[in-house]
Amino acid sequence: MSLMSLTHIEAFYGSSQALFDVSLSVDEGEVLALMGRNGMGKTSTVKVMCRMLGHAAGEVSFAGRDIGGMPSHRAARLGIGLVPEGRRCFANLTVYENLIAAARKGAWDFNAVCRLFPRLEERHAQSAASLSGGEQQMLAIGRALMTNPRLLILDEATEGLAPVIRQEIWEAVAKLKSETGMAIIAIDKSLKELGQVADRAVILEKGRTVWHGPFAALGAAETDRYLGV
């Protein structure tokens, strides 16, 4: 049984339809790459999973439970951890405070996050606003991990970061996959880096699922047609 599944999802912003018959699923321990060019519905799909955007038709289920009518904070408590686009840490709190403000009981605590991202331990007393972009991204991932999620959603986690920092973050994602068996949905534009961790891929175009399958089966024809690379 899939951990998270969207079935025939239709979603709107006001009267404007953003998602048309989107279906996807991710299993425990699996990394799913959610791909598509800008404005194709990736973030809207994530919002539907996190219950930040309601759906007009279809079904959203998590761990075998229909979460369609659930408010976002309750969905998060079930084990959906979101690392949002643009990082958005709590700038008025320190690194440590950002992490403990969101903490829930489980294997992921402050020390475990610091083992994954040692920079955060060095900067624990600094305000989140004073961190570099890469460090803020690590903090955003750490904050999501502190909720001890079963599914981690990374929305453009490495966008705008220096190559060395991107590599550090992808290494952490690989570690999460191999050591914790956590399900991960990763949205990113870098095929090469996604390829290091992703088991399967789903491509969205104009709000529709146009391709899905094993990441290794993603060929030049698909990437050229749907991703423009």
Binding site: C50, M52, F90, I100
Partner: peptide, 23 residues
């Protein structure tokens, strides 16, 4: 406390607080 920090965080970004499971 975690409550005070969460309250302060909610003042800054309500949506983000919801996304980590707090109301």
């Amino acid at each position: 406390s975690a409550f005070g920090l969460a309250l302060s965080a909610a003042r800054q970004n309500e949506t983000r607080v919801l996304s980590v499971g707090m109301e």
